[in-house]
Amino acid sequence: MDKTYRKALKAAFPHTLPILTGFLFLGMTYGIYMRVSGFSFWYPLLMSLTIFAGSVEFVAVNLLLGSFNPLQALAMTLMLNARHLFYGISLLDKYRGAGWKKPYLIFGLCDETFSINYTAVIPEGVDRSCFYFWVTLLDHSYWVLGATLGGLFGALLPFNTEGLDFVMTAMFAVIFLEQWQKDSDHTSALLGVGLSLLCLFAFGADHFIIPSMLAILGALTLLRPRLERR
């Protein structure tokens, strides 16, 4: 391997260690979840490779189990991943001049990779774009590895897996809590829960997502003068 790359790998790897544990655990859970939902390991393998956005992949299991609705799949993904827009905006400068690596850096811009590449202090003498490249590639590999292992061994679990699907609920609840503690104003969080609940009652379990999204976007837009001042 080229010396520049080796040096960058040495600098990048320690930053990704916490992600290694997290992604192996969540990735395996995702793979197991797909497997017990009736999909072969090819699904988690290919989906973790091509989508590489954890929360959306969990949702995608539900989309695949429901009735065929590509528009809802797209809308759900856009809304869930809208936060990635801001990762991109924050990294415009840092990713400039990354050459052939740039498309891959952008492709692999998940939450965890963003938080490392955005905050890491890169040591003197280490090539920046190589550092970003390794962080992205390592995180991506951990996730695919976890998901594939989960998909392969999910059928061999020696215990009853009924109720395992709650892992997705627990995951989103934790992310919601983290967000709650980060925000000083909880209007948006309460709107999200309240409006979705309202739409769930009004439109039913199979059709409430798109109305909820529209209601949330509408309410946030109307409340902007008030919320922006905080």
Binding site: S55, V59, N62, M79, L80, A82, R83, L85, F86, I89, M168, T169, F172, A173, I175, F176, Q179, W180, D183, H186, T187, S188, A189, L190, L191, G192, V193, L195, S196, L197, L200, I209, S212, M213, I216, L220, R224, L227, E228
Partner: peptide, 18 residues
């Protein structure tokens, strides 16, 4: 503005989705 306020609402919606 959306970048600041949207995530909280979206994750709330996702808990309901689950």
């Amino acid at each position: 503005y959306l970048g600041k306020v949207l995530p909280a609402a979206v994750f709330g919606m996702l808990v309901l989705y689950c």
